[in-house]
Design a protein around this nucleic acid. Structure first.
Length: 427
RNA sequence: GGAGAGGUGGCUGAGUGGUCUAAAGCGCGGGUUUGCUAAACCCGUGACCGGGAAACUGGUCCGCAGGUUCGAAUCCUGUCCUCUCCGCCA
């Protein structure tokens, strides 16, 4: 969330930003409530001051009648305070809801607008678009012929949007994890395998809303836990309520987790096969940085994502996401869209990774700060997240781009040591 | 799952109803001494919400949420977490 003082002091800029992001937020009401909050807080403070005074005088009073009288006075004061406090609590609660609903500010260079038309293509990957002298299949057909996935089995056991990976797809899944991990290890990331569940409080700190009709999140009944939609949640939560030393920054973590998404309201939209599923595995990057480091870190994450897909010999483009599609926490977001020859009529780009600079928006909620030697006080860190590889969509890109005329799929060189073969042959 | 112990400032840790305005140590900042560094000594040192030009000043905060009381770090209830032992288990 944004700092409340910042919102009050920059109400116009915040309103304008909400508009650019397509977020309805009552900034004026927030500013008004904040003034009310301050008044009520003053009342409570004054009542407390008097009650404290009375309490202290009782400790010193000797005369029993005097003590009784003062006790009554104190009791009445506390009762009055409780009433004012209740009113104050109501104001604070509403203020909090309003404040949480306000998205992060946007990078001045982020393209303004909504949807794909507004987004800007920044660059292309090293691999050119493939030219097939046959009709390329989509990953579902390829998977069927190669015995890689079982969607019917997934639907029977769990439901629509679930699947079994089988045979060489299992090797590919593990190979992709290990490939990404090895690249990140060489870059100094601390590797983790994170929990697949997290407390709702942590989810909210990262910017997810665990319950409600629109939620993307599966929650666990009779608990305050939810299945994570991304390891961003667990990695960010890992350092919640922590004060770091400036020289520790940046902290670079990567985490492997399963990701669970309800995809509520997404039915019928590119739902075929592995593209939009309820569960997949992902290797995620996460960084905690000093404020002046975060912009460079975003570029670095984006460069790493490109490097990973260049290695996989998958064509892609990098998108500077428009303000209307940034979501709540991101200040700026770059998406990497891989070419998927089996999508649409002639092939289409489909999102495979996404990296965001969330500045201090998540850190404020999660209370993650750092201290500079020789300086008083602490500041909030900046947090960044980026997909290294989301396995399900990575599989789509691999299978569809590397399919060959004989129905086989070539395995890119970087994965061969992990898969143990050069090609996946039809059964 | 059962029994017990515990959660206090950046860290360690004392504190069983009013003088806690939270001891002490470490760390950190400043100073004295000193060729330099180190050591020693002295002083200072939390966060948040307010008021004030400032000096300064009011309030809140001892895992979290309630409760008892004029008054709670301290007593009561719930909850989360950590540790020890027992049971169960991959």
């Amino acid at each position: 969330m944004l700092d409340r003082k910042f919102i009050v002091d920059n109400a116009e800029a915040v309103k304008e930003n909400c508009q650019r992001r397509g977020v309805k937020a009552d900034v004026d009401r927030l500013v008004g409530l904040d003034a009310q909050r301050r008044d009520k807080q003053g009342e409570v403070d004054e009542l407390n001051r008097r009650a404290n005074e009375v309490s202290k005088s009782i400790g010193k009073a000797k005369d029993p009648a005097e003590r009784e009288a003062r006790k009554n006075e104190g009791r009445e004061l506390r009762e009055t305070t409780a009433a004012v406090q209740t009113a104050l609590d109501a104001i604070v609660a509403e203020l909090d809801v309003l404040q949480r609903g306000i998205p992060n500010m946007s990078h001045p260079q982020a393209p303004v607008g909504f949807g794909d038309e507004a987004s800007v293509e920044l660059k292309r990957g090293k691999t050119p678009l493939p030219k097939f002298d046959f009709r390329p299949l989509d990953h579902v057909e390829l998977g069927e012929r190669l015995g890689l996935m079982d969607f019917e089995g997934g639907a029977k056991v769990t439901g629509h949007g679930f699947y079994f990976l089988k045979n060489d797809a299992v090797l590919l899944e593990l190979a992709l994890q290990r490939y990404a991990l090895d690249v990140l290890l060489a870059e100094g990331f601390t590797p983790t395998i994170t929990p697949d569940l997290a407390r709702n409080e942590i989810l909210q700190g990262i910017g997810y809303i665990p319950r409600g009709p629109e939620t993307q999140i599966y929650s666990v009944a009779d608990s305050d836990l939810s299945l994570v939609a991304t390891a961003e949640i667990t990695l960010g939560g890992l350092l919640s309520d922590t004060i770091l030393e400036a020289e520790q920054l940046p902290v670079k973590l990567c985490g492997i987790s399963h990701c669970y998404r309800t995809e509520a309201g997404a039915h019928g939209r590119a739902t075929r096969g592995l593209y939009r599923v309820h569960q997949f595995t992902k290797v995620e990057m996460f960084a905690f940085t000093a404020p002046e480091q975060s912009e460079a870190m975003l570029g670095y994450f984006c460069e790493l994502e490109g490097r990973l897909f260049d290695g996989l010999e998958v064509p892609y483009r990098v998108i500077d996401t428009a303000t209307g599609d940034l979501g709540g926490p991101a200040y700026r977001k770059f998406d990497l869209e891989a070419w998927m020859p089996g999508r649409g009529e002639q092939g289409e780009f489909g999102e495979v990774t996404s990296t965001s600079n969330c500045t201090d928006y998540q850190a404020r909620r999660l209370d993650i700060r750092f201290r500079q030697k020789g300086e008083k006080g602490t500041s909030f860190v900046h947090t960044l997240n980026g997909t290294a590889i989301a396995i399900s969509r990575g599989l789509i890109a691999l299978l569809e781009n590397h399919q060959q005329a004989d129905g086989s799929v070539r395995i890119p060189r970087v994965l061969r040591p992990y898969v143990g073969k050069d090609v996946i042959l039809p059964r």
